[in-house]
């Protein structure tokens, strides 16, 4: 396996041993997203409390990029303030849109953590949607749970 392979060990590890896989019974919103090119599917459930993602679980099937990326995403956002999770989602989105030319600061790398392993995906337009699937589902689920629509960052209705 060459060093510039798309399939970094981290990705393979998350694919084989996914984190936060399984749908929790206690949740505020559930969304189901599909990537028509690979036929990847993911269902995400979130629970928000006090402006933070206190729980997130998912189930899905599809290519390793989509499943591993969802696993990495869940690992990163559970326990985060929703604002921070959204900022991170944004950062990951920019990384995916970088066409292989991302310049990440050390702080970015720290924040993105395992998600940095997906940098190579940005060179393959056909696979970017795979890597984004779980992240987009998380964003929709948070929105569906009422975040951003008439709520402030303290999670209270304005």
């Amino acid at each position: 396996m060459s060093a510039d392979s798309l399939y970094q060990q981290i990705i393979l590890d998350h694919y084989k041993n996914p984190h936060h896989r399984g749908l929790p019974d206690d949740f505020d919103a559930e969304v189901h997203h599909v990537n028509p090119t690979c036929g990847d599917e993911v269902t995400v459930r979130v629970k928000l409390t006090g402006g933070a993602i206190v729980d997130l679980g998912w189930d899905g099937e599809g290519c390793s990029i989509s499943q591993a990326s969802t696993s990495v995403m869940s690992e990163l956002v559970v326990g985060k303030a929703v604002d921070d999770a959204m900022a991170l989602q944004d950062k990951f989105l920019s990384l995916m849109q970088s066409r292989g030319n991302a310049t990440l600061s050390e702080a970015d790398e720290d924040e993105l953590d395992d998600a940095v392993a997906f940098e190579g995906v940005s060179k393959y337009p056909a696979r970017i949607k795979c890597a984004l699937l779980g992240w987009m589902a998380m964003k929709s689920a948070v929105a569906e749970a009422g975040w951003g629509a008439g709520t402030n960052s303290a999670g209270e209705t304005a």
């Binding site: 290519c63 390793s64 393959y124 696979r127 795979c130």
Partner: peptide, 22 residues
């Protein structure tokens, strides 16, 4: 246990062009 898109992508890394999908 291996999605066709992963098979095709990994074959591409070995210079082999195949198609994956429906």
């Amino acid at each position: 246990g291996i999605h066709p898109h992963d098979v095709a992508q990994l074959l591409d890394e070995q210079g082999i062009a195949v198609r994956a999908g429906h």
